[in-house]
Design a protein around this nucleic acid. Structure first.
Lengths: 106, 106
DNA sequence: AATTTGTACAACCATTTGGTTGTGCTTATA
DNA sequence: TATAAGCACAACCAAATGGTTGTACAAATT
């Protein structure tokens, strides 16, 4: 199993989606992300590490605090993939017809 | 770790995305999905099990063959979530301003 | 009836995941 | 200068992940 670090992996986990949602309002430090999250700071830190490796967040040191900012443009890739998949949706009917015609022959 | 079975999990794996792409052209049996996939039938079967549990595919027995059909409408949830996240994008600037104003004070 | 095709099920494996606790370091604040 | 706040790093854990091989069975085909 290769450690996959992409946008799909980033949004696969509900906690990470929650983090992204929180950050969509603007930059936050780790403490603010932990707030009401229900999990420990270290747990959050691990998710932030993953999100960072996925290129979903940018980290900025400011004194003793570290601010996280979401790179929401990365989500475009997901939407693009979904649209690409659904684009073929139109073609499926002719293929289905073809398939039914073939099975009818047997 | 709870076994999460949702659309996000479904599209998290590249092999599963490949399967969905293949199925977006219409229903296929397992053998056709295995073709040129580079992994074993059993490996594919495991992914199909996951996709089924995620509600991403429908399985139909036809004689000794089993046909898979993608439920592409499930992908709407992902797009909805992404749009919801990006919608807040507009609000981030005022929050960022506020944040910068606060840090300037210190 | 024998063979091939399509599939299912189980066991096994290394790695990843998603958390936890514990320790210690640095930077503000009283 | 204490003390508190914010964070990093490491070790540990059970469970999930993403594969593999091996076996067996049902349905077509010859």
């Amino acid at each position: 199993m290769i450690e996959r670090r992409d946008v799909y992996q980033a949004i696969a986990d509900p906690t990470r989606r929650m983090i992204i949602q929180k950050l969509s309002g603007g930059a936050l430090n780790i403490g603010q992300i932990v707030e009401d999250s229900g999990i420990t700071r270290q747990g959050i830190a691990k998710h932030l590490k993953v999100l960072n490796e996925c290129g979903m967040i940018t980290l900025t040191q400011k004194g003793r605090e570290q601010f996280c900012e979401a790179r929401l443009d990365q989500l475009d890739e997901v939407v693009d993939w979904v649209n690409k998949s659904r684009k073929l949706w139109g073609q499926r009917f002719e293929k289905l017809d073809k398939f039914l015609a073939e099975t009818k022959k047997l």
